[in-house]
Simulated scan of single mutants.
Amino acid sequence: MTHITHANARLTPAGRLALARCVVEDGWPLRRAAERFQTSVSTTKRWADRYRTHGQAGMGDRSSRPHHSPRRTPPAVNAASSNSA
């Protein structure tokens, strides 16, 4: 499976895996790993936590689409506006 990383991503899935393994398996402090991989400490923690939870499979890109949209326009309103145009 080919992974396509978004244009602004500092790390590819392979880089994320290396970062996470340094923290989780090799015991690097978050700050040291963040400096080495040129990421923030919070980003480093996020990848390490995801690696602990999901392993290598968790290092891939995820959709940024929200899980739910409570203020989304109701379908009936969308249908009415598309019929009047």
Rank of each mutant, 00 (worst) to 15 (best):
S81I: 14
L17T: 10
L17K: 05
A9I: 07
E35T: 09
A34I: 00
R46E: 09
H54S: 10
G55W: 04
T44M: 02
T73S: 10
A79P: 10
R46F: 09
S69M: 12
S40L: 00
T53C: 10
G15A: 04
A48G: 01
R31K: 03
W28R: 02
E35W: 11
Q38V: 07
A14E: 14
G15P: 03
L30P: 04
G55I: 02
S40F: 03
P74N: 05
L17F: 06
L11W: 02
L30N: 08
R72Q: 13
A18P: 03
R10E: 12
H68E: 07
G15C: 07
A18C: 08
P70E: 05
A18M: 06
G58A: 03
R16P: 00
R71D: 12
H54I: 06
A20E: 05
K45Q: 14
A76D: 07
T2K: 15
A14I: 09
R72V: 09
A76E: 09
A14H: 10
F37E: 01
S84Q: 12
A14C: 08
P13R: 00
S63C: 01
P74K: 07
A9M: 06
R16L: 00
S64E: 15
A76I: 11
G58Y: 01
R10S: 12
V41W: 03
E35C: 08
D61V: 14
P75Q: 02
T5M: 05
A18G: 04
Q38C: 10
T73A: 11
P74V: 09
R10W: 09
H67C: 11
D61Q: 13
T2F: 15
H54K: 15
D49H: 01
Q38R: 13
V77T: 13
I4C: 09
T12I: 06
M1V: 08
L19M: 06
T2P: 15
